[in-house]
Design a protein around this nucleic acid. Structure first.
Lengths: 221, 221
DNA sequence: GTCTATATAATGATAGAC
DNA sequence: GTCTATCATTATATAGAC
């Protein structure tokens, strides 16, 4: 806003992609127009199509870019110090607000790229949880893979609905109080569960008559 | 498809609304066009706008209708046999596939109506959970209200991401196997939690230095 | 109440100069 | 590579007849 034309190392194509990631994330694919993206990138609408062929092509480029960035962050995390906290996996996608917004929007819109991210995070969480079980920090599960899927879905669900959570809490979105109360609630449930007697344990046994999965069924490619 | 013109008790306005609920839910607000809605309702596009003023007005009418229907179902459930299972609250919004699709789409698109539904379900769940605690089926929580918010968000999150869950499970969406495995995973986490030692209990105590909430803070209107 | 036009506006995409 | 037109399509919304 301070100056229309500012020094920028990025090529026009990169500026367009970055502007698109931000606008797609904030407004959604449909509402974000090629004109708006061009304006934010400081180029003409025609150049957007020239570089990416079509609006759809631009989205594909954004998908690829964001997926790559997340994969890079995940690799870095694994190679550096490793935590076995199943929620630490979420830390790697926090912080980068713009990419995060893009990811959440993609998840809402159900794009293939979001699916790949989801799958990747499940795999990553599963590996960390396996290690957590080995070190004794986590309870062994009858099906660790399914549990990883569930936890990732819940974490993303909480992120997708954070506006509703904030409102129900009566706090500002992303305020310190909201985060604290959310973490407290998560911690409590994840430590104790919510059921107090063996009634649901019985229900469980009824559901699982014969087969016993110990290490997590990995039959999906 | 079997016959273009069929006997139908509903007024044209009602047919339009029903068609809109279905199309908004299936395609989203943007992608579902007035023309398509009119076609499905068996009327002209102009009549749609005549009755509801604008496409937005039509959405408002759909919101009101769907919210009303869910409220009615919830009231019926409370007045009949009452379960204290915190997940039984979700049962009342299952089954009605079309309205459910509309609700999930509204949640994805972040409409105010979805927010009202969310809040209503939190209140309802909280009441059931309070009863569950009294009867001893549920563990007492340090903040039952926040826990209710979390559980509703997670349940909705799982619903929102059921496509990803099915894929990660390697099952068909809505297949019997998928539902069973999902329920098993939920039951396990909700019964035992996932953490095995007191490390996170300590983290909890650090987070909560002085205040102690026992019955759930209800400071939100 | 319901229809057949039609107005109006916005959008993705193209052509062709520089 | 980048721009200025411009096209073609599609959308919501309106006017006015029946």
């Amino acid at each position: 806003m301070c100056s229309v034309k500012r020094r920028d190392d990025r090529t026009a194509a990169a500026r367009i992609r970055d502007a698109a990631v931000e606008l797609f994330g904030r407004e959604g694919f449909h509402k974000a127009t090629v004109r708006d993206i061009a304006k934010d990138a400081g180029v003409s609408p025609a150049l957007v199509l020239h570089h990416y062929g079509s609006k759809s092509g631009l989205r594909d480029a954004c998908d690829e870019w964001v997926v790559e960035e997340f994969a890079r962050a995940r690799t870095e995390m694994v190679e550096s110090g490793t935590s076995t906290d199943p929620f630490a996996a979420m830390a790697l996608i926090q912080g980068e607000e713009v990419r995060m917004a893009y990811l959440l929007r993609s998840l809402r819109e159900g794009t293939p790229a979001a699916g790949r991210l989801f799958d990747g995070l499940v795999e990553h969480s599963l590996r960390m949880m396996e290690q957590g079980v080995r070190t004794g920090e986590l309870r062994p599960s009858r099906n660790l893979h399914d549990q990883a899927v569930l936890l990732v879905a819940w974490q993303f669900g909480g992120l997708l609905l954070q506006g509703d959570v904030a409102r129900a809490f009566g706090t500002e979105l992303n305020s310190r109080e909201m985060k604290e109360r959310y973490i407290r609630a998560v911690l409590e449930v994840m430590t104790h569960g919510v059921f107090s007697d063996s009634r649901y344990e019985d229900a469980w046994n009824e559901l699982e008559p014969t087969e016993s999965v110990s290490e997590g069924a990995m039959e999906h490619d």
